[in-house]
Amino acid sequence: MLHATDPSLAALQAQLPQRFPQRLVALADGPQAIREAGHGPAIVLLHGIGSGAASWLQVAVQLSQHARVIAWDAPGYGESTALDAPAPSAADYARRLLQLLDALQIDDCVLVGHSLGALSAAALACSQPQRLRRLVLISPARGYGDPARAEQAHQVRSQRLHNLEQLGISQMASQRSAHMLSPMASAEARAWVHWNMARLQPPGYRQAIELLCGDDLLRYAACTVPCEVHCGAADSITPPADCQALAAALGAPFQLIARAGHASPIEQPEAVARLLAAALDASLTGTAL
């Protein structure tokens, strides 16, 4: 693991204010933190449960040559105001996202959901299809909200809340971050995953646990927005077989990302940027991938 003083990690941190700066957007519910770069058609990036907007840095730097790239810190993450509901659904996150799109005057966009971010992305696609040109899900987390998965939901909720209380964010990041990547990941990628995970805020993380355990992506399967699903070939958190099954349920094409674990936007940012650029192009031309 790299330390905060290591040059490669320090270089990534230094790029954030220069290449993918943060700003706060005033919403009715309170401030919403985003990072933004570039100009052109909008592509909006939603991170997973153990991450944040900064995790998209290397992808955003490449995409910003062709698009207006926006990544949010989900409600309760970073400086973003938490949601009111202690156990929010994906629809609650989608409503906040819609407020953000309105505030940014984005009429339509390509929406990208990574891991747990896929639930919020799918919910917005289902409720506001006219606002999305294309939906891209990367290593989507299905969630445990199906009543048939109630026992698993209870176990996951209990374990994650126990870890939060007993270990705290810092220790959780030290123990969990390596699982987000493939065995082939660079030291820089491992350090960047760890840095992003160590910045979690407990209130937002607790709400995200409730989303994970209380909702189900398949509730939003009746989506008319063109959709595609990708997964790291070495993903051990949302394995390829599970992601492929979700893609089939959504009627979406499925593609593996080579040499990547769960955190593919960090481990293989060039590959992820290429597939998102292709999705953006397809959304503008109306062509199928």
Score class of each variant (00 low, 15 high):
206 R>E: 00
206 R>S: 03
206 R>Y: 00
207 Q>S: 00
207 Q>R: 06
207 Q>C: 03
208 A>M: 11
209 I>N: 04
211 L>W: 01
211 L>N: 03
212 L>E: 14
213 C>G: 00
213 C>R: 03
213 C>F: 00
213 C>P: 01
214 G>D: 03
214 G>W: 06
215 D>I: 08
215 D>L: 07
216 D>S: 07
217 L>R: 01
217 L>T: 09
218 L>E: 13
219 R>N: 13
219 R>H: 15
219 R>M: 11
219 R>Y: 09
220 Y>F: 15
220 Y>G: 07
220 Y>A: 09
222 A>V: 08
222 A>F: 10
222 A>H: 15
223 C>Q: 12
223 C>R: 11
223 C>H: 06
224 T>C: 13
224 T>I: 10
224 T>A: 15
225 V>D: 07
226 P>C: 11
226 P>I: 10
226 P>R: 14
226 P>S: 14
226 P>G: 13
227 C>Y: 05
228 E>V: 07
228 E>T: 07
229 V>W: 03
229 V>H: 00
229 V>Q: 02
230 H>F: 15
230 H>K: 05
231 C>L: 05
231 C>D: 02
231 C>A: 06
232 G>H: 01
232 G>R: 04
232 G>F: 02
233 A>F: 02
234 A>H: 10
234 A>M: 13
234 A>T: 01
235 D>R: 02
235 D>I: 06
235 D>M: 04
237 I>Y: 04
237 I>M: 09
237 I>C: 01
237 I>K: 01
238 T>Y: 05
238 T>N: 01
238 T>C: 06
239 P>H: 13
239 P>E: 12
239 P>W: 14
239 P>S: 13
239 P>R: 14
240 P>M: 09
240 P>G: 08
240 P>E: 01
243 C>N: 12
243 C>Y: 03
244 Q>I: 08
244 Q>F: 09
244 Q>S: 13
246 L>C: 02
246 L>P: 05
247 A>I: 10
247 A>L: 10
247 A>Q: 09
247 A>Y: 05
248 A>K: 12
249 A>P: 00
249 A>K: 14
250 L>T: 10
251 G>R: 08
252 A>R: 05
252 A>L: 10
252 A>T: 08
253 P>M: 13
253 P>W: 12
253 P>K: 12
